[in-house]
Design a protein around this nucleic acid. Sequence first.
DNA 1: AAGTGGTCTAGACCACGTC
DNA 2: ACGTGGTCTAGACCACTTT
Lengths: 242, 242
Amino acid sequence: MSSESPTFSPLYRQIKGLMIQALEAGEWQPGQLIPSEQEFALRFGVSQGTVRKAIDELAAENLLVRRQGKGTFVATHQDPRALFRFLRLVPVEGQLSTPESIPLECWRAKAGVEAARMLGLRQGDPIMIVRRLLRFEGKPVVIDEIYLSGEQFKGLTLELLQSWTSSLYSLFENRFGVRMIRASESIRAVAADRSAAEALKVPEGKPLLSVERVTYTYGDKPVEWRRGLYMTDEHFYLNELN
Amino acid sequence: MSSESPTFSPLYRQIKGLMIQALEAGEWQPGQLIPSEQEFALRFGVSQGTVRKAIDELAAENLLVRRQGKGTFVATHQDPRALFRFLRLVPVEGQLSTPESIPLECWRAKAGVEAARMLGLRQGDPIMIVRRLLRFEGKPVVIDEIYLSGEQFKGLTLELLQSWTSSLYSLFENRFGVRMIRASESIRAVAADRSAAEALKVPEGKPLLSVERVTYTYGDKPVEWRRGLYMTDEHFYLNELN
DNA sequence: AAGTGGTCTAGACCACGTC
DNA sequence: ACGTGGTCTAGACCACTTT
């Protein structure tokens, strides 16, 4: 109908854009119910079908979650179904048990060349670094080193990490208002160095999976860079290609 | 309308199922134009919108490709855009150049326990095994060992492999009528054994990425099992998480 | 000009969850 | 009973490609 936006794209994409803006602005919090399709249709002056198509895409991108009969909700890392959305690790045999996250260290630092590039910061900008271990059934399997913008994660401490029982991303969402939307992982095989060998209790030189992840929030803004070393004797990284 | 199918699912899914059957039966060949949405609507006695939703899903799953103004086509591994649909390898720096595939060996064998399980065969059933090397810019980067059902790939020879200039999957599609739809990869870090070390020209014990892939055709039928060893000093496995 | 997929609408009815 | 998302329809018009 009345196209109030100058960018040329289908109506439903414009609607989608408006809804992303609203999400970004925090109009509804993670886990909360958003208005019904009819309400949006009235609000934006389009048909319900057009709103539907916008929401379809947002749901496909995991920004929203539809629940028939109940309504549409803002996706959250609290949700058990999304708890390990970005963890592709699967045991060679048996069921995937919930890993236990053990924060080891947490300190302030200044961004080096690489961290700055990955996080879209300038070299020397303040960052936070976290080291943590993931254990499955009591056995150490992953050692992570996580780099975060110091600006956004100012109040992060080892105590806070240790007191938090749910996933890291749900902590970021709750305490720092940062919602992780998508991630990009670069995977290599490396030999365990001294520090990794100690943490994972394997001999030095042991082949490990190196998984570097950049995680993005709304607007493709990178907010986390992490490097994980995975022990892949009893687990493997599972990737479905479609 | 008149629901001739006993399974209870939305109409558009039933339509989708019928279209998959037609694809499987080879009613249209890879790369070919299929009937228009209107024609399908008449053929199945449903509205055009319902056909559209069925095709939407098939296109999302890469079975079909839409081209505005032209029509809808059966996806093909010939298509340059799909040539390396399942290869996630990216150079650390520079552009991704097209790899060179060098078939090394090709022989008949009997399925072992593992190959039989992966390919849905019985132990002892005939299989084909192919070893081949992938080189990027002249450098060996991937050594693959590929297991195929002997039934379906009876005429496969080293000569045929060497004479084929396009991707393996386009060969399978053209000469054996087997179209690969999706795949599942299990990734580990391993130490190079003697044979891999020789092929990739790295020292024995060098950490390599082990990528085991099961590839499926229509109806989730496994038809290929392969194990690739990737040298990840100058390349890495890129995975986008959404 | 004609045919294709792509968008948008309006309205009907179904399936699910809550009250 | 009511409100939600999910399906299905019919028809209009737009954008792209070919004739």
